[in-house]
């Protein structure tokens, strides 16, 4: 190809280049592993909110640290950094997921105040399931959004 591609050639090049990012994001086993670890951490963060101080704070802070390490490990491996809020439509999936998980954490705090520690397990499991579904949805939306130039 010469230095002045036609519009059709340029659009084709853009499509091919975007596939490199799409392949990294949708890499089957790696994407599943990422979603499982992410969801497990989120589950602990949410479920841990029913515990007394300082254990609820340890769950939150440890969770944030775990999520940061997870993102850094993925970024080091792929050479790509995606915050989750970059592409326009996928951003709303990430924000929506964060909002739902935040509500679950607040519900957990409320159960904790009432000493209903048992609620931590169903809340944690619900957070895990929601995070798995959210991760899957985010990938689908990201791939759809980056399909065409």
């Amino acid at each position: 190809m010469n230095d002045q591609p036609t519009p059709a050639e340029a659009l084709d090049l853009i499509r091919k280049s975007r596939n490199a990012v799409r392949a990294a994001v949708s890499d089957g086993k790696a994407a599943l592993r990422y979603a499982l670890i992410y969801s497990a951490i989120v589950g602990v963060m949410v479920g841990g909110q029913v515990l007394d101080l300082p254990f609820n704070v340890v769950c939150s802070a440890g969770g944030v640290l775990g999520l940061a390490l997870l993102a850094k490990t993925w970024s080091d491996r792929t050479g790509i950094w995606i915050s989750g809020v970059s592409p326009r439509r996928a951003r709303w999936v990430a924000i929506g997921l964060g909002a739902v998980l935040l509500v679950l954490m607040l519900v957990g705090v409320q159960f904790g105040r009432q000493q209903q520690i048992w609620a931590g397990i169903p809340l944690g499991l619900a957070a895990f399931a929601i995070a798995m579904a959210g991760s899957w949805l985010w990938i689908k939306v990201f791939l759809a959004e980056t399909r065409e130039p």
Partner: peptide, 8 residues
């Protein structure tokens, strides 16, 4: 094209 879809 690559950078447009990612943060970095």
């Amino acid at each position: 094209a690559i950078l447009a879809d990612v943060d970095q």
